[in-house]
Amino acid sequence: MKGRLYLILIFLFLIIIVINIPIFAHKVNIFTYVEGNKVYTENYFSDGTKCVSSKMEIFDNQGNKWLEGLTDQEGNFSFEIPQEEGDLKIVLTASMGHRAECIIRADELRNTTGLVQENLKEPTSKESTESILVYKMGEENKVVSPEISSQNLKEVQLLIENILDEKLTPVMREIKKSQEDKISPTEIIGGIGYIFGIFGIIAYFLNRKK
């Protein structure tokens, strides 16, 4: 009779698990991406609820606070990449004792801005610009004056950036989705197994004492 009741109880909460298969962890997540010279972050609880007006803090690699702000109504927060080199640490403090951390590596920050910025800000020597253009438009064998070419370069860059942004949006979404750590039923059942095992061990030692 006693055994049967326990069986019923186990069965009951196994049913609960099955009903609730799309289960999410109870914690907060930060999803970051770098675009242009800005870092964008999206912040959400793992069941998808946005972290509205939660505190964001950005630290540099020496651990000094560099920026502080609140997320907007959509749980988003963005900021411009600082001039200094080094990793950035993003800390999100949501309500009721939830906190998440995320580190953006320095090369990640520089990769996206570095090349473009250099080309735009420091006007390259005539030769190099020309060679780029000749390389690009080589087939047409056109001679382009450096002034126009640098303008063209800017436009081309903008165009590429826009197209890339557009094309990458679904990829970003996929990545974000895969980053949300959903809890698999294996983990849940495994956890239950571990708990029974641990109490089994405790029972074993209590039994030996007797």
Binding site: F13, I17, N20, I23, F24, A25, I183, I188
Partner: peptide, 9 residues
């Protein structure tokens, strides 16, 4: 184990 699972609901 019930407590363990309850937090997921």
């Amino acid at each position: 184990s019930v407590f363990f699972v309850a937090s997921l609901i």
